[in-house]
Amino acid sequence: MANVEPKRYRFTGHERVFHNVSAVEALPDVLALFGYRRAFVVCSRSIRTRTAWIDRLQARLGDVIVGLTDEVGEHSPLSNVLTAARQARDARADVIVSVGGGSVMDMCKAMQLCISENAYDREALLRLQFVRSPDGTEMLTTSHAPAAIRQIAIPTTLATSEWTPVSTPIDDETRLKARFVVPDGSPQAILYDPALLQQTPVRLLWSTGVRGLDHAINTACSSSPHPFASLLAEQAIALYVRHLPELADASVPDALASLTQCQLATWYTGMGQMSVPHGFSHWMVHIIGPYGGIAHSDAACVLMLAQAKWLEGWVEPQHARLRAAIGQPDKPFHAILHGLLVRLGMPTTLDDLGLTRAQVDAMIGPALDHPMVTRNNVRPITNEADLRAVLELAWRA
């Protein structure tokens, strides 16, 4: 028998997923299900100050909420993580409830690591950054302390952070991303509330939806694909491409149905993305984001498109399946993505992000030093010339 590459599937620790629910109404029962009585809430500043949603949650839970913070900076600064972890510890919280997008959920994962490891200063926390597996395809935790606290996630965006144990908060001192794989860092439960997403600006839903789309494409076009993960990714990609434009289309009769389908796309994406290595576009946002002061999701739009061009002809069977799933079998895959981004009014070039050539030049060294940017790319990106070549594709639409 010919040698067959072994496949692995990684279960990421979720115990319950509640889809198409009212999170305010469902959360008390979810907390009771797991025996939680003291919740520390971490939410975005916008959801707290620009809507009445957190007020409704506080009225519903009452004294069960023992602490709350909306001090969550973009990219989850370590200073915010450490402060909130100490607050949750001092409040004797037995669970963290996140209400927000990727920065909020990432912060909660890092808070879990602080509490489990009793690591409440920058140096102690940074010692816990992930290591690579021997074959370089998987991120492994360096923490082996039992989880002292878990997270229940109520996402307000579409980028799939709720599906991984990975947290990448920014180090305030270096402006570099720290990289943690948190034991039991994936939320214990996820509550998908499409009505809550109506509180999120459509432009943010679009950009984070594209980030989720980028995750799904990296899964489907992985250097070491898994058939189950690819099947889920293909379905996710079709849902994203179909339903993201509907979120601001007045002719669509049921906006909640479109939001529900987009949340379903994040579920499909999340179920597979940790099981296969991702390539350039997934990781380069961790350089462009902090160095350029760019939101991850906006950077993902540009890098997703550049990667599709870079891989043209290298992943033709995968691209053919994706074109078929989307219903545009005769159009180049990068052209489909470009059309979607233009329709959504999202950036397609590094120039659209407001970056200069000098700024991008300064990112080359950190990108080459990053443990994952130059690994696991179907079309190799291994040196400065390769990196500059793929980034050149990101300068033009």
Score class of each variant (00 low, 15 high):
189 A>I: 06
264 L>Y: 14
308 A>M: 08
123 E>K: 11
43 C>I: 04
123 E>P: 03
257 A>P: 10
220 A>R: 14
293 G>T: 08
82 L>G: 11
344 L>D: 11
44 S>R: 04
396 R>D: 13
389 A>C: 01
293 G>C: 09
62 G>R: 04
83 T>V: 15
245 P>Y: 06
126 L>A: 09
133 S>D: 15
43 C>Q: 09
196 L>Y: 06
327 G>K: 04
394 A>P: 03
260 T>V: 06
59 A>M: 00
128 L>F: 04
36 Y>R: 07
160 T>L: 03
133 S>Q: 13
206 W>Q: 10
113 L>S: 00
192 Y>E: 14
314 W>Y: 15
283 W>D: 12
281 S>G: 07
263 Q>H: 11
245 P>C: 06
153 A>S: 15
149 I>D: 02
140 L>Q: 13
396 R>P: 01
158 L>A: 14
389 A>H: 01
228 F>E: 07
301 C>G: 06
68 L>M: 15
196 L>V: 12
271 M>S: 04
381 I>R: 01
385 A>W: 00
256 L>Q: 14
188 Q>S: 05
285 V>W: 03
124 A>M: 12
368 L>I: 08
385 A>N: 05
142 T>W: 06
219 T>H: 10
111 M>S: 04
370 H>K: 08
321 R>I: 08
339 G>I: 06
90 D>T: 08
251 S>G: 06
33 L>K: 08
66 V>E: 02
352 D>K: 10
105 M>G: 13
100 G>D: 11
237 I>M: 14
49 T>P: 01
23 A>E: 05
185 G>H: 09
223 S>D: 12
152 I>A: 14
110 A>Q: 00
22 S>M: 02
203 R>W: 03
129 Q>F: 11
186 S>W: 01
124 A>K: 15
49 T>H: 09
241 V>C: 13
348 T>W: 01
256 L>S: 13
193 D>Q: 09
56 R>W: 00
354 G>C: 10
371 P>D: 05
312 E>A: 15
143 S>Q: 03
375 R>A: 13
295 A>M: 13
323 R>I: 11
120 Y>S: 11
226 H>V: 07
191 L>F: 10
322 L>V: 05
110 A>W: 00
123 E>T: 11
226 H>W: 05
296 H>P: 08
290 P>N: 11
171 D>K: 09
361 D>G: 05
2 A>R: 13
132 R>V: 07
339 G>T: 05
129 Q>G: 15
375 R>V: 10
5 E>P: 00
232 L>Q: 04
255 A>E: 13
26 A>E: 07
356 T>K: 12
389 A>N: 03
81 V>W: 04
3 N>M: 12
1 M>T: 14
80 N>M: 00
